[in-house]
Design a protein around this nucleic acid. Structure first.
Lengths: 191, 191
DNA sequence: ATTATCTATAGATCTATAGATAATGC
DNA sequence: ATTATCTATAGATCTATAGATAATGC
């Protein structure tokens, strides 16, 4: 266990990365600071030398988790591709590395002021991104369509994780995906 | 404080009704058994004469909260009316008496087996109901459309509660509502 | 000397249980 | 006698802090 300033920084990053993963998997109250520290390879006593409060960890972990979304968006060329990647069983089963907006949607209703502010800013970025993706295929109200697409994506990934019937879960993912693709490519018919 | 068997039954119902409201408002972990009992006008010690475990209260409260949805559906004549009632600021601001599928969507991902089973059954009912409402206006894949509408409704009400910007929150509700109405009534144009 | 991390623990929860109290119901 | 509810508390969390230990860095 190192004791240099550089070591402290890497420890800090390790703590935040563990939290960013576990919060997405288990919710913002789903893991305590002691277990996060333990998984990062340190003990609980040092926590408040790294963060002023538990909520500061939440905010930093949220910011880190949102960076995964930035990377995801950079590699997304069109709306069909986004839908094909987002509404999958692989994404549903890996919330820890998946979309933090989806994984923490329910928690945000009761989140701290600073956590909700960060979440809100990320929602605005995603709406702008969706709008841009829709501009090629969409004539009319791009903003409205972006709001619908984001709501449907977040709703479907959460619903697919909530239901205990595997067939229904799969049907939700694929059904919503196909419907939204149908809205982007009005020419194609399915089913 | 009564001590008869009839009194016990009304006490039991009072406990469950308090829980059904508070769980929707604060999440399934958002209130403890002691506070639920207190709000129902009794003390914590009697809890386990009413329920075998905390999770049994969760399941009963969930069933009670879902009855509100049954009543709501009975009074809903068409999809446009459903959208007009569901995606409102009044509903967003009153989760305790609103749609339990929406209020507890995020919690269900990590809920108990029995709670998720109950939730899953309710989702299936809602999908059947939405399908029936869509049958008049929809030609093709009613099931797919029902999956999209349910996902969009749950996503939008959660997102409107999650963001801290009031203007964005309102925009989500109204934007998604108008888009979905546009899908039900393809003839009408807006914006 | 400073500081990154450690061990240990205070104080505030929360679920669940034990045993007392005061009614009901045979 | 039975039972619905009460007071009190055990035991398991969890956040936050105090003080010790063992490195770094001037």
């Amino acid at each position: 266990m190192g004791h240099s300033r550089r070591d402290k920084q890497t420890t800090h990053e390790r703590i935040v990365r563990v939290a960013a993963k576990r919060f997405r998997e288990r919710g913002l109250e789903g893991i305590g600071v002691a277990d996060v520290m333990k998984e990062a390879g340190v003990t609980v006593g040092g926590f408040y030398k790294h963060f002023g409060s538990r909520d500061e960890l939440v905010v930093e972990a949220l910011a880190t988790a949102f960076k995964d979304l930035d990377v995801w968006e950079e590699h997304t060329a069109d709306m069909a591709q986004l839908l094909q990647n987002y509404l999958t069983e692989a994404h549903r089963d890996a919330p820890g590395t998946g979309c933090a907006m989806g994984a923490l949607l329910g928690d945000m209703t009761r989140g701290s002021k600073s956590a909700r502010a960060l979440y809100t800013a990320r929602v605005k970025r995603s709406l702008a991104f969706s709008s841009a993706l829709l501009s090629s295929s969409q004539r009319g109200d791009k903003r409205g369509r972006a709001l619908l697409f984001l709501s449907a994506l977040l709703g479907a990934i959460n619903l697919s994780r909530a239901v205990s019937d595997p067939n229904l879960s799969r049907e939700i993912l694929h059904g919503v995906r196909d419907e939204l693709i149908g809205l982007v490519k009005p020419g194609s018919h399915m089913g």
